[in-house]
Amino acid sequence: MSDLLERLRGRGWRMTAQRRVVAEVLAGEHVHFTADEVLARAAARLPEISRATVYNTLGELVSLGEVIEVTADGRAKRYDPNAHHPHQHLVCSGCGVIRDVHPGGDPLDRLPAAERFGFTVSDVQMTFRGLCPDCARA
Score class of each variant (00 low, 15 high):
residue 101 V to W: 07
residue 92 C to W: 03
residue 16 T to C: 06
residue 37 E to M: 15
residue 110 R to Q: 12
residue 124 V to K: 08
residue 71 T to V: 15
residue 8 L to D: 02
residue 100 D to M: 01
residue 21 V to A: 05
residue 83 A to T: 02
residue 78 R to Q: 09
residue 102 H to A: 07
residue 39 L to W: 04
residue 33 F to K: 07
residue 45 R to F: 10
residue 137 R to Y: 00
residue 12 G to A: 11
residue 77 K to A: 09
residue 66 E to M: 01
residue 27 A to I: 01
residue 13 W to Y: 14
residue 111 L to C: 15
residue 79 Y to D: 05
residue 115 E to W: 11
residue 79 Y to C: 08
residue 131 L to C: 05
residue 87 H to K: 10
residue 96 G to N: 13
residue 22 V to Y: 00
residue 84 H to V: 02
residue 74 G to N: 01
residue 13 W to R: 07
residue 134 D to W: 04
residue 53 T to V: 11
residue 40 A to I: 02
residue 83 A to K: 07
residue 50 S to A: 09
residue 80 D to K: 01
residue 18 Q to W: 03
residue 53 T to P: 10
residue 102 H to I: 09
residue 108 L to I: 06
residue 125 Q to W: 14
residue 35 A to S: 15
residue 113 A to C: 00
residue 80 D to H: 02
residue 60 E to V: 01
residue 19 R to I: 11
residue 81 P to N: 08
residue 124 V to R: 12
residue 34 T to I: 12
residue 31 V to K: 14
residue 68 I to D: 12
residue 80 D to G: 00
residue 63 S to Q: 12
residue 45 R to K: 09
residue 18 Q to L: 05
residue 26 L to A: 01
residue 134 D to T: 09
residue 108 L to E: 15
residue 134 D to S: 05
residue 45 R to D: 10
residue 107 P to T: 13
residue 9 R to L: 10
residue 78 R to H: 05
residue 38 V to C: 08
residue 9 R to E: 11
residue 42 A to I: 03
residue 116 R to L: 09
residue 86 P to H: 07
residue 128 F to L: 13
residue 24 E to Q: 14
residue 38 V to P: 03
residue 109 D to I: 00
residue 53 T to E: 03
residue 121 V to W: 04
residue 113 A to V: 13
residue 121 V to T: 03
residue 8 L to F: 02
residue 102 H to T: 14
residue 101 V to S: 11
residue 70 V to K: 14
residue 38 V to W: 05
residue 93 S to L: 13
residue 135 C to D: 09
residue 46 L to E: 05
